[in-house]
Design a protein around this nucleic acid. Sequence first.
RNA 1: GGCCCCAUCGUCUAGGCUGGUCUAGGACACCGCCCUUUCACGGCGGCGACACGGGUUCAAAUCCCGUUGGGGCUACCA
Length: 487
Amino acid sequence: MSTVRCRIAPSPSGFLHIGTAKMALFNWLFARKTGGTFVLRLEDTDAERTDEAFVQAMCEGFTWLGVDWDEGPAFGDKAAVGELGPYRQSDRKSVHQDAGYKLLKTGHAYRCFCTKEELDAERESAQQEKRRKMKCPCRDLDSGEAENRKDEHHTVRFRVPEGHTEVVDLVQGTVRTDNRELDDFVILKPNGDPIFHLAVVVDDALMQITHVIRGDDHLTNAARHVLLFDALGYDRPQFAHLPMVLDEQGKKFSKRLHGANVLDWRDDGYLPEALINYVALLGWTPAEENRELFTIEELQQAFAPERWSKSAARFDRKKLDWLNGQHIRALNPTVLQGRLVAILEQAGFDVSQKDDAWFATLTEVCQEKLATLNQIIELSDYFFTDITTYEEKPVKKQWQVEGAAELMSQLIACMEGVDLWNRDTLKEAYHALGEATGTGLGKMVHPTRLALTGKSIGPGLFEIAELLGKEVSIARMQQGLAYINSL
RNA sequence: GGCCCCAUCGUCUAGGCUGGUCUAGGACACCGCCCUUUCACGGCGGCGACACGGGUUCAAAUCCCGUUGGGGCUACCA
């Protein structure tokens, strides 16, 4: 059993963002790869931004992706698991406070009685005068005096020591920071609530996290955290700061953008395994060169931090489409069928009029063509609804030509002559007609497709006819013929 | 503003640490051909990059410095 323990620590202030999902995924795959433990911790210390509805939404995202945790809070319909909880930061307040007071006692922290206004003013003038911010006078307050004033409105600040801090990072290398760049940051708010920095460090230490894998927006914070780990007497974990996910324009993936919510991808007909495969590739290169297609299990086998990328990557919808298509092709047909039926039903089609065998055939003829699950709708809507319009371009090309009506009549007669109706018998009949009249197959197929589907593209024509049945096919041919005559 | 991180085809990347084997490899996208009743799938081929400027060196995509561009931190948010 590996000793690796890593975690995802989202703050439930919205849906599951694609960037958070990447971090969760890297932690999860790393834990699975090493046989370690993956912990979910909810960072809900900022009560104003937290909402139970967000907690639910985030849970739904994880559930859809199939990213499961070994330890975590009660979440959605899952019960709390793990010995090192509670796993909601809001339930750990006293632990954080204890750590804060311990720091106060050991002189690693001090009470600061400055007002927010004073601080803001100093920050601004320092900025304007291009000088380093002055240290807070409270830093040097006599500890006895500070103790006497402890009922006054104040914060607790960490006393950043002189010198340098080195963060050893698995992906960024060693990053050295001059401690003067790190202001004495607040660790306890006036109401006693812990600030993020204190809370993460205490929780990571107490939950025995060995690998802190998170976004590189925390790289600078890591120096503060290392200082806190040291001051509290905890062992430092290993760090890995991963680049964030960029949108297609190369900008930070905004929350407002479609696709920022991982569930957008579900709704658009993407497979979770495809999204996972794609996001994994966005910042990790398989050791096995020139390989891109992975199942979840293969990913869990192959995922290694030595090949994590340092530079940020854009989200490329086209490549996701391709990968999604690959995963659809790899899907068990029965499983695919179930998903397609669900989508058609959701789209409002009456799926009860077709039986299981019919859907199996539909799935078979569509599996090779789909890039997303949702494309099944445009690929098969004409099986469920009557034809009311025809695409303009193919009408011009196939029907507004000399002899179109006559050809349609011949094709109808041909269809009527087919007794045992299936793709092969109809194809044979068309071939026979073609040979008898000297007409190429294409010349017959395209007008037929237009009559049967109203479109110029779709699955194989004879497969479509088989699925439609003889009666409906002929009726649609006659409807097409009538349309031609009305032109 | 200060500090930190990043920088190879349009996009994701290999190579960089251990300089020569890189006339820079793969994938997506795009274009062409083949397969084919359409589209897609599949096969074959094409287009296409070391951000810029200085060094170091016999030799630099690879090492160093600077510039530019992108991102982050600089909160009594996380």
